[in-house]
């Protein structure tokens, strides 16, 4: 009996240790960033559809949106969806997108290419949609997170005060919303309430920043106040990923920084990150005029498929 108990306890401890999420759980030795697309534009808004196909936006092109075929070809997607800085598929299969330059939040019917304007006179940067059809977008200039019901069109302020709200994502169970701060050092978390409002705001994740050797010398080294925290996504294990000027940084579900994955040498910067591919095992990053991907040991989540318990059982 004692032995059985001991084995049980050891198994439990093993499970507890598993909450640590080192880079060895994410990276595959020898795997490198592969170039997916390059051009002269400004790439952003990476996302995946229900099958894991990868989509992105070239904010400077007339064509607007692109998708990547299974064999890696970059193909035009829809027509005239220009200037999109962030997008996700909703649970209804429609593509919700931020078009800040024209002051619009739009919804695209991918079958008909018909564009519906959900909200006008707004400056959405990036967005996320829950299984209930609750849409949240970041308005970086207004320092605001805005709630929009995709069903009723209701629009209300969900949060004000983050200095540069930019990337936005959900925990796999849709219970926690996270927002990156482009001008600050934190990614903030909120509890998503039944009515869609956001509660219990917390600076849950602290991003690594570049040293600031020019700053006045103190006891400890000084770091820059921001690392340009941008696009965000979660994986099936509940890790939060955020692009920064130091690379993709990720946090475990308890908010502890667990890894920094620098981008390829020579990139101009990094704007966003998502998981795509048949098993959602590829991490895609948009880097100004280039898109790269890298095969990982983990796998993404598709918010449009509804809430998921995490970490996955298997």
């Amino acid at each position: 009996m004692k032995r059985i108990l001991l084995v049980g306890l050891m198994a439990l401890s093993g499970w507890l240790m598993a909450q640590d999420m080192p880079l060895s759980q994410v990276l595959i030795p020898g795997e490198k960033w592969q170039l997916v697309a390059e051009g002269v534009g400004f790439f952003d808004a990476p996302t995946a559809d229900g099958e894991g196909n990868f989509y992105f936006s070239d904010m400077r092109s007339e064509q607007g949106l692109f998708r990547v075929s299974a064999d890696g070809k970059v193909l035009p997607f829809l027509k005239g969806a220009k200037g999109i800085s962030g997008m996700k598929f909703g649970p209804d299969g429609k593509l919700y997108a931020c078009r800040g330059r024209t002051g619009e939040l739009i919804c695209i019917d991918v079958k008909t290419s018909k564009i519906t304007v959900l909200a006008k006179d707004v400056r959405p940067n990036d967005l996320v949609v829950t299984h209930k059809g609750y849409l949240y977008f970041t308005d970086t200039l207004k320092k605001q997170v805005t709630f929009v019901s995709t069903k009723t069109g209701e629009l209300k302020v969900a949060d004000v005060g983050i200095t540069g709200p930019n990337g936005i994502c959900l925990s796999p169970d849709h219970g926690t919303l996270a927002v990156s701060d482009f001008h600050g050092k934190h990614c903030w978390t909120f509890r998503v309430e039944k009515d869609g409002s956001l509660k219990f705001k917390q600076p849950y994740m602290t991003m690594r920043r570049k040293p600031d050797p020019g700053a006045e010398r103190g006891i400890l080294p000084k770091f820059k106040t921001s690392c340009r925290g941008d696009g965000m996504i979660t994986d099936a294990f509940g890790r939060y990923f955020v692009t920064t000027e130091l690379g993709v940084q990720y946090f475990d579900p308890t908010g502890r920084i667990s890894g920094v994955i620098p981008g390829p040498a020579g990139i101009k910067g990094m704007t966003s990150v998502t998981f795509a591919g048949p098993n959602l095992e590829f991490m895609y990053i948009t880097c100004f005029d280039k898109v790269y991907r890298m095969k990982t040991r983990t796998r993404g989540v598709l918010y449009q498929k509804g809430p998921q318990a995490y970490p996955p059982r298997k």
């Binding site: 925990s171 169970d173 219970g175 926690t176 509890r191 509660k199 219990f200 502890r256 318990a309 995490y310």
Partner: peptide, 20 residues
């Protein structure tokens, strides 16, 4: 810890945030 707002939502565990 911050309990989930709805059934099935994981709590936001605050131990590391408070202690570390």
């Amino acid at each position: 810890s911050v309990p989930g707002a709805e059934k099935g939502n994981q709590p936001r565990r605050n131990r590391a945030f408070e202690y570390d």
